[in-house]
């Protein structure tokens, strides 16, 4: 009987070892440990043994049983993981195939620049305001110290739609509107980004373009304040190393007036094609609000002073993103638009 146990054990272990699939292993289990299994049969025969032999054989059989069980379990686990691996392997996909995803939208470069400017000025306490694009002659010119027949109106050929109404030539029109709305009630600190229109269309001008206007009116506002503000503005937009050059100039709605150049961002001021070898690029018009403009729009020039500035956004956007042709900004070629689809 002892021999029988060791033979069964030996066979069982061998079969377990050889089993290649879980199903076969299950058969092996039944063959030895099942109700009709070989080892089970031996246990049933124990009754016929002597009292002396019974415990001895019992422990022998039980130890064989537990060894088989143990091996079965180990083998089962190993077969299970093999089979899982096989199954998963068969499910392998090509991870380099294209993803299913939404198209990435994009913000127009001009509006990106507008948002950037808005954020900067809002952080300095400015309000962003807007006004009509179809403006009256009164607000676009007359309230800005440009009476009818003024020679400076030549500088901006306009799209009139009636004798009194035109497509605004400058966001400055909103200066007068803002002052008229406030009338000394509160200090003014606003910027006005928006569309403007002039009667010209060529390689460097678009009849529709964008400007941002700034206006500050309060007591004791000086040219030095204007200078400091524009330094922050331009350094923020074009880089910390940007230098500014103020040149006295003439605009009817400011006095004194200045044109503001920035050091060329392409060559850093050494001189290149972009800056026509001058090292400077003209970017802004600015000045101290003309007392007539203050007076006409409800502010006492003896008590209040202010500064105003304006700049073309199309050029800023072009500089910022290296866009070489203004027509691209209004061309709306999908291949252009989709390039502005990420964070700055």
């Amino acid at each position: 009987m002892e021999e029988q146990v060791s033979k069964i054990l030996k066979n069982a272990l061998q079969e377990i070892e050889q089993a290649k699939e879980l199903k076969i292993l299950e058969d092996v289990k039944v063959k030895y440990l099942g109700k009709k299994g070989e080892l089970t049969a031996l246990l049933k025969m124990m009754g016929g043994l002597s009292n002396e032999e019974r415990p001895k054989m019992g422990s022998l059989v039980n130890s064989a049983k537990s060894e088989i069980e143990e091996k079965l379990e180990v083998k089962e686990m190993s077969l299970q993981s093999e089979e899982l691996a096989k199954k998963l392997e068969s499910e392998r996909i090509d991870v380099t195939l294209p993803a299913t995803k939404a198209r990435r939208g994009s913000k127009h470069p001009l509006n990106r620049v507008i948002e950037e400017i808005e954020d900067l000025f809002v952080s300095m306490g400015y309000d962003v305001v807007s006004g009509p694009e179809l403006e009256t002659d009164e607000y676009c010119f007359e309230r800005l110290n440009l009476p009818k027949g003024h020679p400076a109106r030549d500088m901006q050929d306009s799209f009139y739609i009636s004798p009194e109404y035109l497509l605004r030539t400058q966001t400055s029109a909103v200066q007068a509107r803002t002052m008229m709305a406030n009338k000394e009630k509160t200090p003014i600190r606003v910027i006005v980004p928006g569309k403007t229109f002039r009667r010209e269309d060529d390689a460097t001008h678009s009849h529709q373009f964008n400007q941002v206007e700034g206006l500050v009116v309060d007591e004791n506002i000086s040219f030095a304040d204007l200078k400091g503000t524009l330094e922050i503005f331009m350094k923020h937009m074009l880089g910390e190393n940007t230098e500014l050059r103020f040149r006295p100039s003439y605009f009817p709605f400011t006095e004194p007036s200045y044109e503001v150049d920035v050091s060329c961002f392409k060559c850093g001021g050494k001189g290149c094609n972009l800056c026509k070898q001058t090292g400077w690029i003209e970017l802004l018009g600015a000045g101290i609000v003309h007392p007539n403009v203050l007076k006409m729009n409800g502010y006492d020039p003896e008590k209040y002073s202010g500064f105003a500035f304006g700049t073309g956004l199309d050029r800023l956007a072009m500089f910022k993103y290296g866009i070489t042709d203004i027509r691209l900004l209004y061309g709306n070629d999908i291949r252009f638009l989709t390039q502005f689809d990420r964070k700055d």
């Binding site: 300095m124 030095a224 304040d225």
Partner: peptide, 27 residues
């Protein structure tokens, strides 16, 4: 004032940022 500013020299005016009452900007 403009005459004084330009002959005195625009570059001789130092930029500063005005001290205005603190207020939140809006858009």
């Amino acid at each position: 004032i403009e005459e004084v500013g330009r002959i005195y020299g625009v570059d001789n005016v130092k930029g500063k940022v005005m001290l205005l009452p603190v207020k939140k900007g809006s858009y």
